[in-house]
Computed example of a mutant assay.
Amino acid sequence: MKLPPLNALRAFECAARSGSFSAAGAELGVSPAAVSMQVKNLEDWLGLKLFTRRANQVRLTDAGRDYYQKAAVALAEIASFTRALTEGGKRRPLVVSATPALAQLWLPERLKAFAAARPDVPVQLRIEDDSIDLEAEGIDARLSYGGEHPDHRMQELFTDRLVPVGADPQAGLDCAPLVEVNWGAAISSVPGWRQYFVQHGTARGDAAAAIAPSVPSAVALVQAGLGIALLPEQVIAGEIRAGRLHRLAGPALEMPRPYVLVTAHYKSRSRRLRALAEALGVR
């Protein structure tokens, strides 16, 4: 069996994933020069150029990108069955990270479908805002709104639209108190009530009576009778079907970016993740 030098392969995988010899060295506990030397050994062994080096930056070549995807899958599988052996055969959970809105309002029904399809795969759900490092935090899949993930695989879940909702189906857009969602510093593209009224020509310019830090918080405020809110229709569809929220008369406002499923490229062949994507409606 002809295998490459495994220390060199590990250094290459780490450098390719992190995009930096320095970051790879910090993860492996060695110097950037040691990582560079290991990568050079692997390049010499393969007879291929895996990185282009310019000043302090490194980038994968086409050959390096292809080799990384295959090597990362192999190393991940080795890590997986090694973990299974050392943990006495315990099933490793599939770690799914999601924004509060998706985790609390949209995801439960889909996870139920996943559990029915793959009862052998336990799921560990983490609820957290954006700016997540999937690799560093051991996350298998991330569900969020929009965002840029150039080093990961992004699959669209759905594109939503904002609709006015209230606890009272007779509440009017012209006079009911307004609940505004604060989408956070990482998201600037989601319009609010001001843009809604301007776009649809409604003469109303008063400030929001309440500001919610998340969509679930806004749902709670609306259900408590504190006002009406502009919320993503598909995300809150379960609340509307259950009669806990009511879609009010008024136009919808398209959200400019989709909700997405984010995974590492090297996990694209994972049967567990493919089953999860299917349960989430990704085709």
Results as ranks from 00 to 15, higher is better:
72 A>L: 08
37 M>E: 09
42 L>F: 01
261 L>E: 03
74 A>R: 07
200 H>T: 06
1 M>K: 15
165 V>T: 05
35 V>S: 09
19 G>N: 07
98 A>M: 01
150 P>T: 03
257 R>P: 02
111 L>K: 00
152 H>T: 01
34 A>T: 14
262 V>C: 12
276 L>H: 01
186 A>W: 12
119 P>K: 02
106 W>H: 02
202 T>K: 06
193 W>E: 10
189 S>A: 09
52 T>N: 13
112 K>P: 01
229 A>N: 09
226 L>F: 04
105 L>C: 05
233 E>M: 01
163 V>Q: 04
96 V>Q: 08
33 A>V: 14
23 A>R: 15
57 Q>M: 04
228 I>A: 11
11 A>N: 03
114 F>L: 06
16 A>T: 02
14 C>D: 07
94 L>V: 15
185 A>M: 08
152 H>K: 05
265 H>N: 13
97 S>G: 11
75 L>S: 13
193 W>Y: 09
63 A>V: 07
207 A>F: 04
155 Q>A: 09
237 A>G: 14
59 R>S: 06
264 A>T: 15
278 E>L: 14
232 P>S: 05
58 V>K: 11
275 A>G: 10
6 L>G: 09
258 P>G: 03
280 L>P: 00
95 V>I: 12
33 A>T: 11
4 P>C: 12
82 T>R: 13
92 R>L: 14
108 P>Q: 11
80 S>P: 00
119 P>V: 01
255 M>S: 02
184 G>A: 10
102 L>K: 01
8 A>H: 07
198 V>Q: 00
195 Q>V: 02
165 V>S: 04
57 Q>S: 06
208 A>F: 00
23 A>I: 04
186 A>I: 12
112 K>Q: 14
204 R>K: 07
256 P>Y: 01
